Measured scan of single mutants.
Amino acid sequence: KLLSSIEQACDICRLKKLKCSKEKPKCAKCLKNNWECRYSPKTKRSPLTRAHLTEVESRLERLE
């Protein structure tokens, strides 16, 4: 599967780190437990900047 097509777990399953069936409108866990089942939009991760990478590398060197 391509990364862009990976389905996201519902908010509660993601928060509780449960295996989500990803069914809509309610996944199996939410249906069974009568929880409100919501699927928040995916958040875009910002790409690493060179400055951040350099900072992490220098912190790693100090720890070694």
Rank of each mutant, 00 (worst) to 15 (best):
residue 41 P to Y: 05
residue 32 K to Q: 10
residue 36 E to R: 12
residue 64 E to N: 07
residue 14 R to D: 03
residue 58 S to M: 13
residue 34 N to G: 12
residue 59 R to D: 01
residue 22 K to S: 04
residue 56 V to D: 08
residue 47 P to Q: 03
residue 5 S to G: 11
residue 4 S to L: 13
residue 8 Q to V: 05
residue 10 C to T: 04
residue 29 K to C: 08
residue 10 C to D: 00
residue 36 E to I: 08
residue 1 K to M: 15
residue 11 D to R: 02
residue 59 R to N: 07
residue 7 E to V: 10
residue 22 K to G: 03
residue 28 A to K: 14
residue 1 K to W: 03
residue 29 K to Y: 05
residue 50 R to I: 04
residue 30 C to H: 04
residue 32 K to G: 09
residue 9 A to I: 09
residue 11 D to W: 04
residue 6 I to R: 05
residue 38 R to D: 10
residue 20 C to D: 04
residue 61 E to W: 13
residue 32 K to N: 11
residue 19 K to P: 05
residue 32 K to I: 09
residue 23 E to F: 07
residue 40 S to M: 04
residue 45 R to I: 00
residue 45 R to Y: 01
residue 17 K to M: 02
residue 51 A to G: 05
residue 27 C to M: 02
residue 60 L to Q: 03
residue 23 E to N: 14
residue 36 E to C: 13
residue 25 P to L: 03
residue 38 R to N: 15
residue 47 P to D: 09
residue 9 A to N: 03
residue 19 K to G: 15
residue 55 E to P: 01
residue 40 S to Y: 07
residue 43 T to V: 12
residue 15 L to M: 14
residue 32 K to W: 07
residue 37 C to L: 02
residue 46 S to P: 10
residue 47 P to M: 04
residue 64 E to M: 14
residue 16 K to M: 02
residue 38 R to T: 15
residue 3 L to T: 11
residue 64 E to F: 02
residue 58 S to N: 13
residue 6 I to N: 10
residue 2 L to S: 15
residue 57 E to D: 08
residue 34 N to Q: 15
residue 19 K to E: 04
residue 32 K to R: 15
residue 63 L to T: 03
residue 63 L to V: 04
residue 35 W to P: 06
residue 62 R to Y: 04
residue 36 E to S: 14
residue 62 R to C: 09
residue 26 K to L: 15
residue 40 S to T: 09
residue 27 C to N: 01
residue 28 A to Q: 14
residue 36 E to V: 13
residue 40 S to E: 05
residue 12 I to W: 15
residue 6 I to H: 11
residue 46 S to Y: 04
residue 7 E to F: 13
residue 15 L to D: 10
residue 42 K to F: 10
residue 11 D to Q: 10
residue 51 A to K: 11
residue 48 L to W: 07
residue 46 S to N: 01
residue 56 V to N: 01
residue 7 E to Y: 06
residue 41 P to H: 06
residue 22 K to D: 04
residue 7 E to S: 10
residue 38 R to E: 15
residue 62 R to E: 03
residue 6 I to A: 12
residue 25 P to F: 00
residue 47 P to S: 03
residue 6 I to V: 10
residue 22 K to Q: 08
residue 46 S to E: 02
residue 41 P to L: 03
residue 20 C to T: 05
residue 62 R to W: 05
residue 63 L to P: 03
residue 41 P to D: 09
residue 48 L to T: 06
residue 20 C to E: 06
residue 12 I to C: 12
residue 59 R to F: 03
residue 1 K to E: 03
residue 49 T to I: 05
residue 59 R to E: 01
residue 26 K to N: 15
residue 23 E to S: 13
residue 14 R to A: 07
residue 16 K to S: 00
residue 4 S to A: 12
residue 24 K to R: 14
residue 62 R to G: 05
residue 1 K to I: 05
residue 59 R to G: 04
residue 42 K to N: 09
residue 31 L to C: 12
residue 37 C to G: 07
residue 16 K to N: 07
residue 10 C to V: 01
residue 17 K to N: 07
residue 23 E to M: 11
residue 3 L to Q: 10
residue 7 E to G: 10
residue 45 R to L: 03
residue 6 I to Y: 12
residue 21 S to Y: 01
residue 40 S to Q: 08
residue 30 C to D: 03
residue 45 R to D: 00
residue 18 L to R: 03
residue 26 K to H: 14
residue 7 E to D: 11
residue 2 L to E: 15
residue 15 L to Q: 10
residue 13 C to D: 00
residue 59 R to Y: 03
residue 30 C to N: 08
residue 2 L to V: 15
residue 44 K to W: 08
residue 26 K to Y: 12
residue 63 L to A: 03
residue 64 E to Y: 12
residue 45 R to G: 00
residue 57 E to W: 07
residue 12 I to A: 11
residue 60 L to Y: 10
residue 29 K to W: 00
residue 63 L to F: 12
residue 41 P to I: 03
residue 12 I to D: 10
residue 2 L to D: 13
residue 47 P to L: 02
residue 16 K to T: 00
residue 61 E to V: 15
residue 22 K to P: 05
residue 4 S to F: 13
residue 18 L to W: 10
residue 52 H to L: 04
residue 60 L to H: 05
residue 3 L to D: 15
residue 45 R to V: 00
residue 53 L to D: 03
residue 33 N to H: 11
residue 33 N to E: 09
residue 31 L to R: 15
residue 7 E to K: 09
residue 25 P to D: 03
residue 9 A to V: 08
residue 44 K to E: 05
residue 36 E to W: 04
residue 9 A to C: 03
residue 29 K to H: 00
residue 61 E to I: 10
residue 49 T to C: 06
residue 32 K to T: 12
residue 24 K to S: 15
residue 50 R to Y: 08
residue 32 K to H: 09
residue 24 K to M: 15
residue 39 Y to A: 06
residue 31 L to G: 14
residue 48 L to N: 01
residue 33 N to Y: 09
residue 28 A to P: 02
residue 60 L to R: 00
residue 5 S to N: 10
residue 32 K to P: 00
residue 55 E to W: 13
residue 62 R to Q: 13
residue 9 A to W: 02
residue 23 E to W: 07
residue 11 D to V: 08
residue 50 R to V: 08
residue 3 L to I: 13
residue 51 A to R: 11
residue 43 T to E: 15
residue 47 P to G: 05
residue 25 P to Q: 08
residue 34 N to F: 14
residue 32 K to M: 10
residue 40 S to G: 08
residue 5 S to R: 11
residue 1 K to H: 11
residue 12 I to L: 11
residue 19 K to Y: 02
residue 17 K to E: 00
residue 22 K to Y: 05
residue 26 K to S: 12
residue 39 Y to K: 00
residue 49 T to R: 00
residue 23 E to L: 08
residue 52 H to D: 04
residue 21 S to R: 02
residue 10 C to G: 00
residue 31 L to H: 14
residue 59 R to W: 01
residue 53 L to N: 02
residue 2 L to F: 08
residue 48 L to A: 01
residue 12 I to V: 13
residue 43 T to G: 09
residue 44 K to V: 15
residue 13 C to N: 02
residue 39 Y to M: 06
residue 56 V to S: 01
residue 9 A to D: 00
residue 32 K to C: 08
residue 24 K to Y: 15
residue 38 R to S: 13
residue 40 S to A: 08
residue 37 C to P: 02
residue 8 Q to M: 10
residue 24 K to Q: 14
residue 59 R to A: 09
residue 58 S to H: 14
residue 61 E to H: 14
residue 57 E to A: 02
residue 45 R to C: 01
residue 21 S to C: 01
residue 32 K to F: 08
residue 7 E to A: 09
residue 5 S to W: 04
residue 36 E to H: 11
residue 45 R to H: 03
residue 8 Q to R: 06
residue 35 W to C: 06
residue 56 V to H: 07
residue 22 K to R: 10
residue 64 E to S: 12
residue 54 T to L: 07
residue 15 L to A: 13
residue 53 L to T: 01
residue 18 L to V: 03
residue 44 K to Y: 08
residue 15 L to H: 11
residue 52 H to A: 02
residue 11 D to H: 06
residue 7 E to W: 11
residue 20 C to I: 05
residue 46 S to A: 03
residue 36 E to T: 12
residue 58 S to V: 13
residue 3 L to C: 14
residue 34 N to D: 12
residue 15 L to I: 11
residue 34 N to W: 04
residue 56 V to P: 02
residue 51 A to I: 09
residue 50 R to N: 01
residue 7 E to R: 07
residue 23 E to K: 10
residue 18 L to H: 13
residue 49 T to D: 00
residue 33 N to V: 04
residue 15 L to E: 13
residue 10 C to K: 06
residue 18 L to E: 00
residue 31 L to Q: 13
residue 16 K to E: 02
residue 57 E to C: 07
residue 37 C to D: 08
residue 42 K to P: 15
residue 53 L to F: 03
residue 3 L to A: 14
